[in-house]
């Protein structure tokens, strides 16, 4: 596809996405908002995993840290636009901390280190009742208002979240086009060579985790205000897994990979409700099959066809 066609398709999808909720019921609007919220987290994870080549099974922990920051501070009456950067910075710092094991170990070790981090965060959320409300969670999280305009209704809140998602996507796009994006890719493709060319792999590894975490944190703040209630369950390791799968299924290291992947993991379960519990079983085995036949994710299908065509 030419660049121009791509832009047309992108613009058309954005318009469709913006118009669609007008015709949907409350639950449909909720789902689309939820999609945006998850997308913020998976786009961040795509940077960590897909572009910088680090393994992370702890994204939901950052999502949770962001959500709990929002829950605690917003119920204390802090303004939304103060809480948002605080949560992002807190997650950025937590991401830096999680990046340290990544400097020592890679791949599967790192997968378990990040998974372990998620378990730890989950335990804190569940057990530190004074701070987090334990399993009862924190309720009545207020939604923000924008220059006096209330965002309590589903539709305005959707547009509010949608706009934030687009802004975040633009910021990431900028970052990945900058020399940083190239350095991340160098770190992913060949860290030893990168270091010999002056790429500070320590700094970029930590940044990859921290930026990915900050995106999840921002997503978490929107999540808390969307559902108005946080408890530990949505931030379990399972959620991290789902986010990683969203990135991989869509096509990791591709800008639009998480968009497609998040549709698959967030919206598809809703459409496949008739399958009930079987859905996740099918999903699990589908991931296995996908890895065997299409390790590059769904977005690699066109290239597959091209390669086939060229070979024949």
């Amino acid at each position: 596809m030419s660049t121009r066609n791509r832009l047309v398709v992108l613009f058309a999808s954005l318009v469709a996405f913006a118009v669609l909720p007008i015709f949907l019921k409350t639950y449909g609007v909720y789902l689309m908002t939820l999609f945006c919220v998850y997308l913020m987290a998976t786009m961040g994870l795509n940077l960590t995993v897909g572009y910088a080549g680090q393994m992370s099974l702890g994204q939901a922990a950052f999502f949770g840290i962001g959500a709990y920051h929002a829950a605690i501070l917003l119920t204390l009456g802090w303004p939304f636009f103060v809480v948002l950067p605080i949560a992002a910075v807190a997650c950025f710092a937590a991401g830096l901390a999680l990046g340290f094991p990544a400097l020592r170990v890679q791949h599967h070790y790192l997968a378990f280190a990040t998974l372990g981090f998620n378990v730890l965060v989950y335990l804190v959320m569940r057990n530190e009742e004074k701070l987090t409300g334990g399993t009862f969670g924190i309720a009545n999280i207020p939604r923000p208002s924008l220059v006096g305009f209330s965002l309590d209704k589903p539709l305005p809140f959707f547009y509010f979240t949608f706009a934030a998602t687009i802004l975040l996507a633009l910021a990431l796009w900028w970052l990945l086009r900058s020399p940083w994006g190239r350095a991340f890719a160098a770190l992913r493709d060949n860290p030893i060579r990168a270091e010999s060319l002056g790429v500070n792999i320590t700094a970029y590894t930590l940044l990859a985790f921290a930026i990915g975490a900050a995106c999840a944190g921002i997503g978490g703040v929107y999540f808390a205000t969307l559902v108005n209630f946080v408890e530990p369950a949505p931030f379990h390791v399972t959620a991290s897994l789902t986010m990683l799968l969203a990135v991989i299924v869509g096509g990791s290291g591709r800008f639009f990979g998480p968009m497609l992947g998040t549709v698959v993991v967030v919206l598809l379960p809703e459409w496949l409700r008739f399958m009930q519990n079987w859905y996740l079983a099918v999903f699990g085995f589908a991931v296995v099959a996908l890895m065997i036949w299409l390790p590059g994710g769904l977005l690699s299908i066109p290239e597959r066809f091209k390669a086939k065509g060229a070979a024949e």
């Binding site: 940083w180 190239r182 493709d189 700094a203």
Partner: peptide, 27 residues
């Protein structure tokens, strides 16, 4: 030892970019 997924041009640029300016400046 090349960066297999980067384009040839990006391979060359990344080999020199880290010597220019500061980390934050490069963003």
């Amino acid at each position: 030892q090349v960066f297999v997924k980067l384009s040839v041009r990006d391979n060359l640029i990344v080999a020199a970019q880290e010597f220019k300016g500061t980390l934050a400046g490069r963003l």
